[in-house]
Each structure stands twice: as structure tokens, then as C-alpha cells.
């Protein structure tokens, strides 16, 4: 994570860019809706890159025509978890895909402390490496307060 400016985690789309404005988020959601994907809002406070299954905020939203409803949901999630990672995911249920087709972060903690590299010495001179978020030292829910 040394190369990552200001320790911002980079997961999903647009994460190397500055934070998206609401207008930009709306346009991205609009794109997903036009493709017929189901959009939902998820949050977590565990920034580990392998943490793929985030908590879902409310129900997944099917049959929406307009992004306003989803943006409303994003904003209410931001209100509830102002210091969590929040992402918008668009799920494609078409046979053969059946997977999220879009996923981008719409909210992040004010301060992201970044990751430490942990080395574990194994038998002979073998070393295992892993990353660990400084924030993950604290229990869930208190990590970014």
C-alpha cells in the first residue's frame, strides 16, 4: 500500500479517482438501470481487499426506473454509517453472468490509516506475507469512529 496515495483503498470501479459527486453517482446508477441490473447498497468497516461480502443496507432494489430512489438509499446509508465504506453494486441476473457487473465505493471513512505488512516466519527460511489494516485492530463498529 506504499504506492497508494493517502492510503485510500482501491476496490471496484473509480476508486483511483477523487470521490464521485452525487450527480456522477446518479449517472452511473442510471447506466446500470438501463442495462436492467438490480442495484443495491452495501457497507462495511473492514477494508481488507479479500473482504468481498459486505453487509447489505436494506433490501436489494428491483424494477426501479430512476436512480433517485437508489440515491435516496445511499444518502440514508451515509447518514447511518457516516464513517464506513459504502458501495453501490449492480447485479446482472442474466444467465451466464449472474454476478455483479458494477461496483463502486460512494463513501469512505474520513481517515483511512492504511495497512501493515505482516511477515510470518515458517519452517526453514520460508516467510508468509499478509496485509492487515490498522483499523482492523479495533472491534467491528469502532474502527473508524
Amino acid at each position: 500500500m506504499m504506492t497508494n496515495h493517502r492510503n485510500r483503498i482501491t476496490q471496484g470501479q473509480f476508486s483511483f479517482l477523487p470521490d464521485l459527486t452525487d450527480e456522477q453517482i446518479t449517472k452511473q446508477i442510471k447506466y446500470a438501470l438501463e442495462k436492467g441490473w438490480a442495484v443495491n447498497v452495501e457497507y462495511t468497516d473492514d477494508p481488507h481487499p479479500r473482504n468481498t461480502y459486505w453487509e447489505m443496507f436494506g433490501m436489494p432494489m428491483f424494477d426501479l426506473k430512476d436512480p433517485a430512489g437508489i440515491l435516496m438509499e445511499v444518502n440514508s446509508c451515509r447518514k447511518t454509517f457516516p464513517n464506513h465504506y459504502i458501495r453501490v453494486t449492480a447485479f446482472d441476473s442474466t444467465r451466464g453472468w449472474e454476478t455483479p457487473r458494477m461496483s463502486f465505493i460512494v463513501n469512505r471513512p474520513k481517515k483511512e490509516p492504511g495497512f501493515t505488512l505482516v511477515r510470518q516466519e515458517g519452517p526453514s527460511r520460508h516467510v508468509n506475507y499478509t496485509v492487515r489494516s490498522y483499523a482492523a485492530d479495533k472491534p467491528e463498529g469502532q474502527r473508524y469512529s
Partner: peptide, 14 residues
Amino acid sequence: APKTKEVIKKAMGG
């Protein structure tokens, strides 16, 4: 509340 909100979200833009 979730039920009403779901309907409202579906109707948005229309």
C-alpha cells in the same frame, strides 16, 4: 415503512 418506500422508489421518475 420498507414496503411503502420500496413502492415509492419504484415510482420515482414517474
